[in-house]
Each structure stands twice: as C-alpha cells, then as structure tokens.
C-alpha cells in the first residue's frame, strides 16, 4: 500500500479535480441562468460527450484529466461513442449497435440493479431542511 501512495501522481489529481469541477460549473451556470432542467442538462452532457468522443476530441481531455473527464456524464457519452467505434472496427456495421451499450453495460446495469434494490429497502423521506 505504501508503494501505492508513493506512486500517486499529484498533478494528475489536481487536473482531475479542476476539469471535473469546471464541467460541473458549466452545468451549474446552465441550470441557474437558462432554466434548463437538470434532466435536460444531463441529456445535453451525454450527447455532447458522445459527439466529442466521436470526433476524437474528448480523448485528449481523458488523457489529460483522467477521472475528471470520465466520471462526469460527458465521459459516459464518450464511453458510448468509443465503444461503438471500436466495435465497428472489430465487427463492422453491426458494431455501431452493439459497441456503445457493451462498453457502458456495467454502469447502466449497476444503476438499474441498485435502483431496484433501493426501492425494495428504502423509503423516500421529506426534506426537513
């Protein structure tokens, strides 16, 4: 474990923090200033991420900021596009349909499964504050 800590690339974390934070600031400004609902902002982010991924631009941000670029929802879009392109390379046309979801399967399945589990166990509560 000490090996792990001594190998930490602090600059990587700094850029991760800044890029992730700035992506959130942009969304916050959109929500506050344009009255876009959160659902629309999420859709916008995933679409922009997928398009930038398709154009090969988003990859540079991922190389630069790591999780700062992949954890925000633009990263989810990028991952979908990346998967589609890679699958097209491997299997041809049908890859466009299989690659995206295959690459993001873990995230989608986890959200659905955990959502279902939470609905079994937990109950919504009023926001007192």
């Amino acid at each position: 474990m000490s090996d792990f800590f001594s190998n930490i690339d602090w600059m990587q974390y700094l850029w991760c923090f800044i890029v992730g934070g700035v992506l959130c600031i942009i969304a916050q400004i959109l929500i506050d200033k344009t009255k876009l609902t959160p659902a629309r902002v999420l859709v916008l982010y995933v679409t922009v991420g997928a398009v930038l991924g398709g154009l090969g631009i988003y990859k540079y941000l991922v190389d630069f900021a790591g999780a700062g670029a992949t954890v925000p929802l633009t990263g989810f879009g990028y991952n979908l596009s990346k998967g589609a392109i890679e699958a097209v390379k491997e299997t041809g046309f049908i890859g466009a349909f299989t690659g995206g979801v295959k690459a993001s399967a873990g995230g989608i399945a986890a959200a659905v499964f955990f959502g279902y589990i939470a609905s079994l166990i937990a109950k919504p509560k009023i926001k007192k504050q």
Binding site: A27, P38, Y45
Partner: peptide, 12 residues
C-alpha cells in the same frame, strides 16, 4: 447542485 448531478452519481 451540478456538482453531484453531473458526475455519474447524478445519473444513478
């Protein structure tokens, strides 16, 4: 706000 919405946590 967007700080927890935009990361994949918000999607979940």
């Amino acid at each position: 706000g967007a700080g927890s919405l935009i990361p994949i946590t918000g999607f979940a």
